[in-house]
Design a protein around this nucleic acid. Structure first.
Lengths: 191, 191
DNA sequence: CGCCTCCTAGATAGATCGCTCTAATAGTCT
DNA sequence: AGACTATTAGAGCGATCTATCTAGGAGGCG
């Protein structure tokens, strides 16, 4: 299967985006770390770096978004699911030397005012996450409108905590944000 | 006063960082937009781009952090202050075409795993904000420990909401996050 | 006036950027 | 086998990046 090269390119790019963002990641660095031939980049992604970026954003957005059902569905209730989610994010972050946080937030901020296709890719990913999280909350008996608000709050709290955590090299923001959202969620649940 | 050139360099760099981040901002672009001579960059910032970046981070961090006393101190109570803060952030963001959000979050994510001096500058800025916000909350009668948690939550919610808002070109995340934090704060206040 | 320091001014170096191009190879059909 | 497409391989182009370097102008002070 020749597509394994393309996969290797995307996964490597995703890792690099996560650690250093879009602009600091060069094509040369990608092919080196992915052990892929230079020409393959433009064979698989004729649109160049921007197309590779867009596909990488959508791919890693889907990967990370898969954590929502993976954690929420087997959990006894949504509140413990939220706690598990934030705790897991904190553990992964610390284990990677405060490098592996959200795979698309860095790129999202970099490109939001610069590249419309990349901005849209980020927006679509966030939309998917919000949709997915909302479903779990409505499934727990929360009204649709309130569920969306809480989903937005959860994603925002997570992303913001990642920013603080990476800058300060501490998991405290993730712990605090997780607890805050768990509390808010608890209160929103039907009695 | 010849220092006005240096000021112009820092303020334009801050603006560029905010819109496109650290890596996408070139020295050439800075001197062009600041109408400053190229040589002045390395005269005022012998450490090059990294030193200019660090000073810009600290400067714009201080500028943005000044909003905390400016909004909290004249406000009737901390809850309405929080609402005002988030509403103002949303208004500024929309007015700038979703470009002017947090002046340092983009840079923070870009450099956190790449440049220790720049990471430290971001961490110091966040520390200052948390300190400043905590003071206002303890001043409202909230216990020190709880005040710090709420301050972290507020900054995280704001930063995360900025990420969502810029990607989706919507102020909804800021409105929701602001309301969520106002509620949490309300409940933490002494009866 | 001459001197000294601060700042301006920009040419230029050396490396790296994204990307294009051609050619060779691998794999799959008829 | 022969023909055709998909993929690999990397040399090289023009542009741009940060940074260095030299030289000149501005203003205070003897």
């Amino acid at each position: 299967m020749p597509t394994e090269t393309k996969d290797r390119i995307v996964t490597t790019t995703a890792e690099l985006f996560r650690r250093q963002g879009y602009n600091a990641t060069g094509i040369k660095q990608i092919v080196d770390e992915a052990r892929a031939p230079f020409g393959s980049i433009y064979h698989f992604f004729p649109g160049g770096k921007e197309q590779l970026g867009a596909e990488t954003i959508r791919w890693s957005g889907a990967m990370y978004g898969a954590l929502v059902p993976a954690i929420f569905d087997p959990a006894p209730d949504v509140v413990t699911a939220v706690r598990t989610f934030f705790a897991g994010a904190a553990a992964d972050l610390a284990a990677s030397g405060y490098a592996d946080a959200c795979p698309i937030a860095t790129v999202a901020l970099e490109v939001a005012s610069v590249s419309e296709p990349l901005r849209e890719a980020c927006a679509d990913v966030f939309d998917g996450w919000l949709e997915s999280a909302s479903e779990r909350l409505t499934g727990a008996g929360i009204a649709k409108r309130r569920a969306r608000e809480l989903a937005i709050g959860m994603v925002a709290a997570l992303e913001g905590a990642f920013v603080l955590a990476r800058a300060q090299r501490s998991t405290e923001p993730l712990a605090v944000a997780g607890e805050l959202m768990a509390d808010a969620l608890q209160r929103a649940l039907p009695a």
